[in-house]
Amino acid sequence: MSQVPVARLQDVTKRIGSRTIIDRVSLEIYPGEVFGFLGPNGSGKTTTIRMMVGLMAMTSGDISIGGHSVRTHYPQAAAQVGAIVENPEMYKYLTGYQNLLHYARMNASITRERIDEVVKLVGLSGRIHDKVKKYSLGMRQRLGVAQAVMHRPKLLILDEPTNGLDPAGIRELRDYLRQLAQEEGTAVFVSSHLLSEMELMCDRVAILQKGQIIDIRSIRGQAASAQQQAEEALFDVDRPEAALGVLQGQGGGRIVDGLLELTADRNEIAEVNRRLVEAGIRVYGIRTKTKSLEDQFLEVTGSETIG
């Protein structure tokens, strides 16, 4: 990507007492990408986010958003950001609409029409004039998304956004975030420890452990290259031993849990299937074992406990 990054973190460090919570974290987030921020609990994801939105001061390093330093030009930097930090805590004695109005007043660009539009977008139209104390966690999460996107931020920061959402809500949010990134060019920064979620949502992920970034990798690119690569394929057949005989050891075939497992790329899989069928073996199903982000994550972070 040759674009100018929306957000740039440079050697961001946070020390509390003698403990280094965040250690020289550097990353860049570009317009139109969904950037995942992964890490086990206690790795410093939320602390990093708090520093990005100015809730915490950094010990050294700098964060700039849209070219404005969070340290020295906070209001200008904050104007480009929409965020939910941890749970979206709202004023419970106000209605959903009054809550949105509250945040809208703090940003000159938001009109009443825009508030209505956002309310419709997050699907709260029917309940927006109810007090927030009557909302479910999922509804609060939706209201949180509404306040974060109301002013069309260039950078949207969501801390564990799928907490409290039902599967349909998660899917809706995922689609919406992808749409925001693609159509409006918003940079979306999402933190999570739910790896499978991130895999579906993100273009790139950074993996944080003990306050340090240990890896930044592209996810979409990997999915594409995986098609050419040889991978583990599982064949569900009626007579695994006979099938193994037919293949004569091709691809290091072996029997695992009654399934025939072998290593092959896409073309080879089709070829194996043809040979099995021609030999009169019934093939009930074929699937490939793509290495999930979870496997990769555990590979990189090891099985270490919270540090």
Binding site: Q76, A78, A79, A83, E86, Y103, G144, Q147
Partner: peptide, 14 residues
């Protein structure tokens, strides 16, 4: 104590 401070302080105001 209610946590609303977080959403209040991330606005473009000092």
């Amino acid at each position: 104590s209610t946590g609303t401070i977080k959403l209040l302080l991330i606005r473009p105001w000092s």
